[in-house]
Structure formats: structure tokens, C-alpha cells
Simulated scan of single mutants.
Amino acid sequence: MNDTLSVYLSGANAFGDFAREWQTRMGENFALAPFSPATVAGFGARSQGFRLRDVMFNRFESAASLRTTGPRVGADDHVRLWIVHRGLWRLGEPGGGTEHTAPAGRLLVQTGKLSHFAAAPHSTVQVLVLPAAEIRSERGRTASGSVDSAEVRLLTAHATTVRRMLDGLGPAGVDAARDTLAELARAVVRGGLDDTEPRLSPALAQAARDLADRRLTEPALSPAALARELNVSVRTLQRAFASEGQSLSSYIRDRRLDEARRALITPHRRMTITEIAARWQFADSGHFARAFRNRYDQTPSDYVASAAPRT
């Protein structure tokens, strides 16, 4: 069974609505833990995720503090990867037991039943749950690491792609998406990626696009720089893009042109065409004009003129 979840809830009945939606979408294998009364009363959150056969992935953004209570829940043969992007997340046994703390930028790996957890207000976490058989790990063990690794970037990029495309996947596509999630989870836990694994090419390409999109104005952005950050060879990265019919260099150039085109018609813009060319890392205005014309069949000046409101 597969399903997607996307909710943004707050207000008096928010927790009840969220719990019903979770039960419907995620099912008994990924049951919610019991929450404290204070958490239920002040609940407000955004949740986006999916269930893919025996794997679950969810991004959870809490508006208020969270805390579970009561017995552990869920299957005893699960592994959970908690990827904390914002705020503070605590996992374990409060009140004298072992409790692990993960601030933003840290990852917790926990095996066995879902333990107690708590989160500070305005915390954001992604959690992947999969069968323990996929990862060799001691039951009940909790390990920590950084979210700023190539393996975590690939995992989150692939999960984002799966969530977006899940409704359109056939049985073979679902199997491939699920197996790639498991392979990337193993890479996160062992701290190393098998970059010869062909199933990882789509995730590798997506992670490179995500990184490039955040750094389009940086002069050092290049396929070699992205390959270093993703801990793979340039050839491996280029091969991942070639399978999609586009080179990474072309992707970077096209995205810079897209952003420059938007900048040209930004209301009340203060940058000249030359300044826009420099911001988006074109060698000079002549180089920018040639690249722009090749892409859009107009010079930057003609594009600005054609986009201006007619009076």
C-alpha cells in the first residue's frame, strides 16, 4: 500500500484532525505515539510525507512544543532516521532514563519500537522509518551524526522526489523508489555511498540540482565543486545527469538565465543589465546577451521592452 500525507493544522481540533488523517494515510504499522495533554491542547503543525509499502517518510514542522507519553508504540523491527533541520529534538527515556538530544544539523538513528520524543517550538524534522532488516544495527541502539553529509542530502532529495511523483508511479517504479530509499538509508548509517549503484543516479542528480539552485550567484559553483560536496567523482555526477538527457553545466547555465530573466522584469528593479549579468556569473554583458538570445530568441534589452506594460 502507498499513500501521501499533506496537512497544515492549528486551532482547537487540530490534533484530532491530524491523528485521523495520519491513521488513514500511514496505517497501524506507523501508528502515532500517545501525546501529552499539553501537546494536544496547543497542537499546530505542518506535515508532508508518504507511505511506500513498508517504508514511511515524513517532514514535520511543529509550531508549539511536543512531548509524547505512555508506552512505546510501533513494530520492534523498525529503524528510524530522525533528521533535524531546525529547533531541538529529544529522543529516548525522560525522567532518569537515557535521552538523546539532537539540535538543528544533527541526525539520530534509532532501532526498535518508537521511543518517547519531545521537540522545542518551531522545530523541523524529517523521519524515515524502514524495516530493521534493511540496516544491520543493534536493537535499541541510538547513534548520532551530521545532516550535512552527502548521504543525507541524497536521501532527502530522493524522498522529496518520491513524494512528488508517488501518485504517478506504477508497481515497478514504486519498487525502485522504495529500494533506493533503503540503499540511501544504509549509506547514511554506514557513512559511505556506493556511487556505482545505478539506482542512485536520480537521487544524485536531484541533490546536485538542489545544491546548485542555492548557489547560483556564487562564482565557484561548478560540477567539480558539487561533486566534492556530494562525495562522488565528477564523472559519476556527470553520468547521473547524462541519464536524464542534460549536462550539469547546462543545468547551471539555464537556471542562471532563468533567474536573470526574472531579475530583468522585477518591478522597480535597480540593477542594470550589466549588473544582472555579473550577479548571475556571466563573464560580461556581451556573453550574457548571447546566452540569453540562444535560450529565449531575444536580447535582454528586447525582452525588457516586450515585457513592459503598454500604455
Results as ranks from 00 to 15, higher is better:
6 S>P: 00
9 L>M: 08
9 L>C: 07
14 A>C: 04
17 D>F: 02
19 A>L: 03
20 R>F: 01
21 E>A: 12
21 E>S: 11
22 W>L: 09
33 A>R: 11
34 P>V: 02
35 F>C: 05
36 S>W: 00
38 A>K: 10
41 A>G: 02
51 R>E: 04
73 V>T: 14
73 V>H: 01
73 V>M: 07
78 H>A: 09
81 L>Q: 10
82 W>S: 14
83 I>H: 05
94 P>L: 10
95 G>R: 13
95 G>H: 12
95 G>E: 13
101 T>Y: 01
111 T>V: 13
119 A>H: 04
121 P>A: 07
122 H>R: 10
131 P>M: 06
134 E>L: 05
136 R>C: 08
145 G>I: 04
146 S>T: 12
146 S>V: 07
148 D>M: 07
155 L>A: 08
166 L>C: 08
166 L>A: 12
168 G>T: 12
173 G>S: 08
174 V>R: 09
175 D>N: 10
176 A>E: 09
178 R>Y: 03
178 R>D: 01
183 E>S: 15
186 R>N: 05
195 D>F: 03
199 R>D: 02
202 P>N: 01
203 A>S: 00
207 A>R: 11
208 A>P: 01
210 D>T: 14
218 E>A: 15
221 L>Q: 09
227 A>S: 12
231 N>S: 13
234 V>I: 12
236 T>D: 07
241 F>L: 10
245 G>I: 02
245 G>Q: 03
248 L>R: 04
256 R>V: 05
257 L>I: 11
261 R>M: 07
262 R>G: 05
262 R>Y: 02
264 L>Q: 08
270 R>M: 06
275 E>R: 15
279 R>Q: 13
286 G>C: 04
288 F>Q: 07
289 A>Y: 00
300 P>D: 01
300 P>K: 06
303 Y>I: 04
303 Y>M: 01
305 A>N: 02
308 A>C: 02
308 A>Q: 10
